[in-house]
Amino acid sequence: MKNYWLGNTSLAKTFWSLVLFILIYFYVIHSNLLHKKIESLGFYIFVDMLGVVLSFFILGSVWRSANNYKGNKIWPILSKTSLILIVIYSLYKAYFKWRFPDLINNIF
């Protein structure tokens, strides 16, 4: 984990392994897989918060790895943009969707 955080692993490895992990994480916690088995509000609040924490950790890791990348400049830009979108998604699902439901409904 330290190597990921310091950006010492390759951009491709960092991006695909961590993004795959977080996408699976979000799929599991936001799908109906768990909702039928776990009814605890505290659990969902905690896992959503943890999702945000993990997103920021992955953002930091990919950002550093992208800064160290020496190849085509498009890949660091795409990877950073993807992670920003993942962070925004995690914040939306964990907080803004519930804090501003009317605003979100009006926009979408």
Binding site: W5, S40, L41, G42, F46, L50, V53
Partner: peptide
Amino acid sequence: MTDKIFLLLSTMLPTIALLLFFMYSD
């Protein structure tokens, strides 16, 4: 009981996560 455990974890998580994030960003 489950809610109590997750309440305690949720109370501690944001402060500890932010602290570790900035500490290891140095």
